[in-house]
């Protein structure tokens, strides 16, 4: 891994007045901020015990231009991990590696390894179709199919053959909508088009659609950026509930949201995973200069 030089002067060069914190954790030989603005080495422990997904040295290139630099990160079971960072920092790109959505982008190559329950998802033998069923995704803008609410949910189970009969499918749809907290609102209008719901409902519909194929991990790419505060609150509540059954990786621009919903937070900068740790620690006691700059609002 490319490690930028650590120089004490760089703090001064950056010209930023920083508070010193006792980290008392890794890298104990350094007091206060462990890294300067020039050092992109990951601070904090990116690894967990018995992770659901393991990412090692993941790099992404777009036609020769590197967008993600050697990220190593574990995703634990039943946790919500938030990815934050300024625009263009590579967090969405990294997220899309986790269910190989980047495959659809021409000229995009991924190196390193990502495993899901011990299976290398970039292995040649792996079929992306079941993979994407296991690692579901919710997008920035609610994107229900222009079909009925019922068909929106039933589509995934249908193509994967998850329901043997009509009644099974009905039950699956109801269960998914219940889990997404949408059942009571839409149970009488399942044949109405999904696109006529409000933005927040649409996003929950998309979450329900993802749940319907019983994934293990749910990736959320800024799921609330197009929603109003009330709808956002509702989705956040839902994320909290879903944690019981799924691992959730959420990319967000809202630090408050990250603080509210996640247990761990990863901070990305310029394609590097700069810091990762418990959410409380990241927001109260960042150990990387860049993280601190970001969460205190100096840039980003």
């Amino acid at each position: 891994m490319n490690t930028a030089c650590y120089t004490p002067e760089s703090t001064i060069i950056a010209g930023v007045n920083v508070h010193l914190h006792d980290t008392g954790d890794v890298n104990e030989d350094v007091k206060g901020l462990v890294s300067s603005a020039e050092d992109y080495t990951t601070v904090g422990n990116p690894f967990v015990e018995s992770p659901r997904m393991k990412c090692r040295e993941v790099s992404v290139d777009y036609s020769g231009k590197r967008a993600v630099f050697g990220v190593s990160l574990d995703i634990a079971r039943n946790e919500v991990i938030a990815m934050i960072g300024p625009s263009g920092c590579g967090k969405s790109t990294f997220l899309r590696c986790l269910n190989r959505m980047n495959d659809t982008i021409p000229g995009c190559t991924v190196s390193g390894s990502i495993t899901l329950d011990g299976m290398d998802i970039y292995d040649r033998k792996v079929d992306v179709v079941p993979l994407r069923a296991m690692v579901g995704m919710v997008f920035q803008k609610p994107n229900p199919f222009p079909k009925s609410i019922y068909d929106n949910i039933a589509y995934g189970p249908r193509i994967h053959g998850l329901a043997g009969s009509r009644s099974e499918l009905d039950a699956l749809v109801e269960d998914s909508l219940r889990k997404a907290g949408l059942w009571d609102e839409v149970k009488d209008q399942l044949d109405k088009p999904g696109t006529m719901l409000s933005g927040g409902q649409q996003q929950r519909l998309c979450i329900a659609r993802t749940i319907a194929v019983s994934p293990e991990v749910i990736l959320m790419d800024e799921p609330c950026s197009a929603l109003d505060p009330i709808a956002t609150a509702r989705v956040e509540e839902l994320i909290e509930e879903l944690r019981d059954n799924y691992s959730i990786v959420i990319v967000t621009h809202s630090m408050q949201q990250a603080a509210r919903v996640s247990q761990r937070t990863a901070y990305f900068h310029m394609g590097w995973l700069v810091e990762v740790g418990e959410t409380d620690q990241i927001f109260t006691n960042p150990r990387h200069k860049l993280t601190e700059n970001y969460i205190t609002g100096r840039f980003g």
Binding site: V129, R132, M137, F139, P144, V213
Partner: peptide, 15 residues
């Protein structure tokens, strides 16, 4: 056809 529809379909595992 907006790319979001393609993403949505790919996202639930459609080929």
């Amino acid at each position: 056809v907006p790319p979001s529809i393609r993403e949505a379909a790919l996202g639930v595992g459609a080929s």
